[in-house]
Amino acid sequence: MAAFPTLLLSLHVLAAILAVGTLAVAASLFPRYALRARGGAGEDVAEEGRERAAGVAAFLHRVCRTYAVAGLAVPVLGMATGSALGVLTDAWLIASMLLTTAAALLLALAILPVQRHLLGHPADGPPPDSDGGTPRPTPAATAASLAMRTGVFNLLWAIVVVLMIARPGSA
């Protein structure tokens, strides 16, 4: 392998570890702290504990937003690496790109907005019910749903990692 593709691959892997890894951890921790901040964690939390949890939740949301932007380097470097190696049309890479796109859409449309909603910014979160008959979900239900979405996000990235290592059909 020539030096340039090796450099691109190294940068791609570093970006994935630092950006996506950090994002995965922060997004996974967020629902617990957001729910605790709202006093709905099923435990009696003092006001000081709620304030601390609210600060942690806000910090985790900022980390998620920041690393979501930084994470854009991962597919950019991945495509540059794939191009340099001549594998852009390989099935494993195309599948990885589709899964990466799905993870990015999930993050942008179903994780970050719900995080903002749980932080008390409902205008940026899920829209209010339009039929008037269905009650709005409780913070606990919203946090549970967010935790599930985050789990799916992390699973998509885990599958991408396996595809990057195993590269089915490339041998």
Rank of each mutant, 00 (worst) to 15 (best):
M148L: 14
A144R: 15
A123L: 12
P75M: 03
G55I: 04
G42H: 03
G39V: 01
A147K: 08
A54D: 12
A68L: 05
F30Q: 03
A27W: 01
L118H: 01
W92H: 08
L99M: 06
T142E: 05
G125E: 11
F30A: 05
G120H: 08
H121L: 09
R52A: 14
A73E: 03
A46L: 15
L60Q: 02
D90Q: 15
G55A: 11
E48Q: 07
G82N: 01
G78L: 08
F59N: 03
A80E: 14
R36I: 00
A46K: 06
G42P: 00
R52V: 02
Q115C: 02
A80M: 14
Y33F: 12
G82M: 03
C64V: 14
H121M: 07
A53S: 13
L107Q: 10
G120A: 15
S96H: 02
S130F: 11
V76R: 13
G82C: 13
G55M: 09
L105A: 10
A123V: 12
E48T: 07
A54K: 02
D124P: 00
E47F: 03
V25Q: 05
A84C: 12
P126L: 12
R32F: 06
R136G: 15
T81M: 10
G120Q: 07
A53N: 02
E47H: 05
H121Y: 09
A95I: 05
A68Q: 04
E51P: 01
S130H: 06
T81C: 02
A104Y: 03
F30E: 06
A34F: 02
P139N: 12
G78T: 11
A123S: 06
A140W: 11
G86I: 11
C64L: 07
G49R: 06
T138F: 09
H117G: 10
E43H: 11
G40L: 02
R149W: 05
G125P: 13
A54F: 08
P127C: 14
L23P: 00
E48N: 11
Q115G: 11
L23C: 02
A123K: 15
A68W: 06
P122Q: 03
A46C: 06
A141V: 12
A110Y: 03
A58M: 06
T22M: 13
G71N: 07
T89E: 09
I111E: 00
L72N: 14
R32S: 08
A104L: 10
G39L: 00
I111N: 00
A103K: 00
A41N: 09
T134H: 15
V87Y: 12
A84M: 06
A102H: 14
L88Q: 04
G125V: 11
A80W: 07
A68Y: 15
P128S: 07
A80L: 04
A110V: 13
A147V: 04
L105F: 10
A140K: 04
S96R: 00
G133P: 03
A104F: 12
F30K: 00
A108F: 15
L88N: 07
R38P: 01
R136A: 12
E47N: 10
A102C: 10
